[in-house]
Design a protein around this nucleic acid. Structure first.
Length: 592
RNA sequence: CGGGGCGUAGCGCAGCCUGGUAGCGCGCCUGCCUUGGGAGCAGGAGGUCGUGGGUUCGAAUCCCGCCGCCCCGACCA
């Protein structure tokens, strides 16, 4: 491809709107263009990357035995009513009416559509297990699209759905998809980590998210380097924190102090000149409608999932002011554990404090010097908060780290939620009817682009991984009017293309600096510069985007020399991927 | 949905306070010149100043409404 025909509108300056590195660089490199909030066009260069990402995904899905199909984005609302999800999608469902009364939705995901197919077409255990997948555009009315293509209202997703006759088949499909995801992200060259995520109805380790660590990521990942434990903060467990028996003997009794108008932890701490980690907050929730409380250290965040499970509730929601006062008799902002009547769980970090500042359960009063175990009972102590940096790992007990990440994939054991709701059943070998057991597996294909740029760029631009780059090599002739230069450039380009490489020739008029800057910006892995100066010495210049310096090779044999370098680079990638596969296999057999 | 910010040429911005011919840089077109890290000179094209109303002899500028976009937060089956 010649640059002069390629529509690559690079820009020197970035729009002020863009904040995230991936957003800035994809715009500046002429790969994407915004049409509206959360709606982006993929320009030819960006489209090539999207295709490469999709091809890797498709290759590995096919290799894993999944069958590709294509389902419509436009769906009748009835299947959503049937599954029970209509009205429970938190406003992300895009719905409208066609004509007078045909009510339709744009699919945010396809459990309903695929279950509708399978309930009619799969009736026998002989047809199982089966995994179906598609690469297709999803629509979600995100309340706040952001960071360029990282979170959009319309995006390309690979979604796969497995159907099995029993748990063994589900687990096998899950493991197969998990391994396929690892291979996909290895091929993308990502420094990803698979983390435990909020689990579904089956429990256990039935859900994993694949994260690429980066500061722009919207998810928080908790990890232990020693044990390999990694989890989404929503899910991450915290190891045991010991708490001593209360030293009733030498501790003075607690004191009620006036704290007029100080409701938040920050206000109280500032007023009493107390650090936040010496206070505790009592949070009141409705667990399936019943008021319950959780006592969390002032500087910590409650984890609603952990609290919900502690009360064995299906739904846990924060109580509003009226419900709080009705349940505790105390005003919001001055709640505390002393004398509280409703069921209460206590985070282990609070139990471990010798004395604590808490609300006084009366207007404008807080209590100081409250001793856990003496002034309120430590009956239900446990792990009820989000992990923070340095918390002990649940496996090794060593300090864990906390970092941000971009979620690029998610594997999930669904069970029979949709097959039950929509009547997707099969007959077993005894003629008995059962619900199909499902799993679902998603990859955000455009997020692969965003994650790649976030994880791999420098001050000059994008550094595409070899397998995602829109072109493998850019050939840069410096003097267009010099025949020897142009002949060599065209000849090399032909050689590379014949060897199966994607080649871009920068045939634009203009000074070398412009071409070098653009080549760096759009992030092509390999740059070949052909100029009069080098030709005099009989050399052309080779520079890898990942290297800081260029090197010269003999012009006469440049084609084969450079192709050998490409082959070596690809082999190095493949070797690395193979090592990772072997490490995973070893870890799996170690577990058994 | 709450808080904050911004809408003037493809991109980055000035002009607005104090109303009076719409400007600068980049990019684009023509020519000259230059050619190993975003050169230089000359000439040119391109804007209903987000939108609707109001005030005024006159509105990019002042007032009111609406729309759009970005950031923080809430939300994220």
């Amino acid at each position: 491809m010649r640059w002069s025909n390629a529509l690559i509108p690079t820009q020197k300056e970035s729009p002020t709107d863009a904040v995230a590195p991936s957003h800035i660089l994809l715009l500046r490199a002429g790969m994407i263009r915004q049409l509206g909030a959360g709606a982006y066009s993929y320009l030819p260069l960006g489209m090539r990357v999207l295709h490469k990402a999709a091809k890797i995904v498709r290759d590995e899905m096919d290799a894993a035995g999944a069958l590709e199909l294509l389902m419509p984005a436009l769906q009748p609302v009835e299947i959503w009513q049937e599954s029970g999800r209509h009205g429970h999608m938190g406003g992300i469902l895009m719905e409208f009416t066609l004509g007078a009364d045909r009510h339709v939705v744009l699919g945010p995901t396809h459990e309903e559509a695929v279950t509708d197919i399978v309930r009619d077409l799969i009736k026998s255990y002989r047809q199982l297990p089966v995994t179906l997948y598609q690469i297709q555009t999803k629509f979600r009315n995100e309340p706040r699209p952001r960071f360029g293509i990282l979170r959009t209202r319309e995006f390309v997703m690979k979604d796969a759905y497995s159907f099995g006759a029993n748990l063994e088949q589900l687990n096998a499909a899950y493991d197969t998809m998990y391994e396929a995801y690892c291979r996909i992200f290895d091929r993308c060259g990502f420094p990803y980590v698979a983390v435990e995520a909020e689990s579904g109805p089956i429990g256990g380790d039935s859900s994993h998210e694949f994260m690429v660590p980066c500061a722009t990521g919207e998810d928080v990942v908790v990890q232990c380097v020693e044990s390999g434990y990694a989890a989404n903060r929503e899910r991450a467990e915290i190891g045991k924190i010991a708490w001593p028996a209360p030293s009733v003997a030498d501790a003075p009794p607690f004191v009620a102090v006036p704290t007029p108008g100080r409701k938040t932890i920050q206000e109280v701490c500032k007023f009493l000149k107390t650090p936040e980690n010496q206070t505790a907050k009592l949070l009141v929730f409705l667990a399936d409608g019943q008021p319950v409380a959780a006592l969390i250290r002032g500087d910590h965040e409650a984890n609603e999932g952990k609290i919900r499970r502690a009360f064995k509730a299906t739904v846990l929601e924060p109580a509003d002011q009226a419900a709080v006062e009705k349940a505790t008799g105390a005003p919001m902002g001055f709640l505390g554990p002393v004398g509280i009547k409703i069921p209460m769980v206590i985070d282990q970090s609070v139990a471990a404090m010798p004395a604590v500042v808490v609300g006084g359960n009366a207007m404008d009063v807080h209590l100081t010097g409250v001793v856990p175990g003496r002034d309120f009972p430590l009956d239900h102590v446990g792990d009820f908060r989000n992990a923070v940096e340095g918390d002990p790992c649940p496996r090794s007990g060593l300090a864990m780290t906390v970092g941000q990440g971009i979620e690029i994939g998610h594997v999930f054991k669904l069970g029979t939620k949709y097959s039950d709701a929509m009547g997707a059943t099969f007959l077993d070998d005894k003629g008995l009817s059962h619900s199909l057991i499902m799993g679902c597996y998603g990859i955000g294909v455009n997020r692969i682009l965003a994650a790649a740029v976030e994880a791999s760029h420098d001050e000059n631009g994008i550094i595409w991984p070899l397998n995602l780059a829109p072109y493998d090599v850019i050939v840069v002739p410096l003097q267009l009017q010099n025949e020897a230069v142009m002949q060599l450039a065209d000849g090399l380009a032909k050689d590379f293309e014949a060897a199966g490489l994607d080649v871009l020739i920068d045939d634009r008029e203009g000074r070398p600096g412009v071409k070098f800057k653009d080549a760096d910006l759009i992030g092509i892995p390999l740059r070949i510069v052909i100029g009069e100066r080098g030709l005099k010495e009989g050399t052309v210049e080779v520079k890898w985007r990942t290297d800081s310096a260029a090197h010269n090779v003999a012009a006469a044999t440049a084609g084969e020399t450079i192709l050998a370098e490409v082959v070596a680079a690809r082999e190095a990638l493949a070797t690395k991927a193979a090592e990772r596969r072997a490490a995973r296999a070893a870890a799996r057999s170690g577990e058994q």
